[in-house]
Write a protein that binds this DNA or RNA. Structure first.
Lengths: 235, 235
DNA sequence: CGACAGATTGACGAAAGTCAATTACGGTGG
DNA sequence: CCACCGTAATTGACTTTCGTCAATCTGTCG
């Protein structure tokens, strides 16, 4: 039976551009994979290869310098698309941060299918444009913000993006578990683990956030956090 | 007469996806504009509005924090596409750095036309994917490189991108004029003008580059520059 | 020949990085 | 349920890089 009909991200992933027959055809080319935390799906520099939809879990996109310094260049959630269609080589690693399910396609298969289905390409274009906007905003964070500003912006961003699993409420939430450890937060923000730790504790000391366990964050004073986040990105 | 037939970027811009009739139809919706250096075509936050092809000149995409800190998030050259189709609001300013010619379309007109011409959307998708890759590599630069590494990477990048005007040679070139002043270099690299100046002079002192005039750069030792760019041992 | 913006240089300070302990959490097994 | 272990996180002391502020220089252009 066609697994796509019961796919939890069917209506949110790019597949939502397709009708039942089309999605079945695409589904026939796809393979379902489970990833364990830390498992890498795509390696930087590898000839591309593989694209996928994220069904469940959180994955990071990262690049590094030869001496090991690493920068996380993207984080993807369920319904997001990963990989580089149309034959360029992969520019970054894709690694699972949590247990993850993905639906993979060979690059060539997907490219061909996409060219024949403009609605699919359109969805992919909209997604890519949105991701480009998001990435460019991150340039401002990395290039021009202080450590405290970075962290505040990051926490607010997380409080808005992590809502997805339970679609019950649709505003930002004030308590959540990060899918990242301290080192990964550092790799997202272009900081060291020590600086992340120190600034986080400053926020805690000021009563702006609570950190009841390693990965849990409670936003106690959203106003204050927004104030720090920006000496304000103009929006 | 249809101006597109004589357009210098006709074969490189996204228009190259269209046949003669189609390009004429698109051309009818477009308006030609001249920009003077410093002139802003699109403002951050403005409801989108306007998209365009760059015909001549260099433009920057930038965002800033409320206190004036600025980050350049992209630089566009002739044949590049600017603006945000499909109804999101503009996320950054678009400002001419040199005299520039652009061919603008109202967002709505362009969106409608694009939806009816999948080949055009495909070209745009390929461009957007490439730009996303490029932007993500810049995250690594901003988040993890030292000032010297940033500058070396920047100079090498420029030596490869600035070839466009004269298509005579098609490798990197070793002498070129930057379309940027020091402040703009700083805004691209997430540094201050003073740091840019100092590190540039270090390179000069070491005989790696020559700086015969304000905006001119001569790469005298590409090896050394590449060494610094990738995990620089020097300094 | 100035005048002015842009660039350089210098002295200093502060933010973040580095290195090295130390502590706390969370999972495991008794 | 509790003790133990290993990893992750925190904390502290110190260093380095880069930013800040201010003065000076330089080239471009009227």
């Amino acid at each position: 039976m066609d697994p796509c009909t019961t796919c939890v991200v069917r209506n949110r992933a790019i597949c939502s551009a397709l009708d039942l027959n089309e999605v079945a055809a695409l589904g026939k080319m796809g393979r379902h994979h489970r990833l364990v935390p830390g498992q890498t799906l795509i390696w930087e520099g590898e000839d591309s290869l593989l694209v996928a939809n994220v069904i469940e879990g959180v994955l990071k996109l990262s690049t590094s310098l030869s001496d090991g310094r690493e920068q996380i260049v993207g984080v993807v959630y369920p319904s997001d698309f990963i990989g580089r269609p149309f034959g360029a080589r992969a520019q970054h690693n894709v690694t699972a941060l949590t247990e993850a399910h993905v639906c993979t396609f060979s690059g060539g298969d997907f490219d061909r299918f996409a060219q024949e289905h403009p609605q699919l390409e359109h969805k992919l274009l909209e997604r890519t444009l949105a991701e480009l906007d998001r990435t460019r905003r991150w340039l401002l964070l990395l290039g021009r913000m202080t450590a405290s500003e970075k962290l505040a912006t990051f926490l607010l961003d997380m409080s808005e993006r992590l809502v997805r699993p339970d679609c019950s409420s649709n505003g930002p939430i004030n308590a959540f578990d990060l899918p990242f450890g301290r080192q990964q937060i550092a790799d997202i923000l272009g900081l060291t683990i020590e600086t992340v730790s120190r600034r986080l504790n400053d926020f805690k000391a000021e009563g702006i956030i609570g950190v009841p366990s390693r990965r849990r964050i409670e936003i106690l004073d959203r106003e204050a956090l927004a104030g720090i986040a920006s000496s304000g990105s103009v929006r």
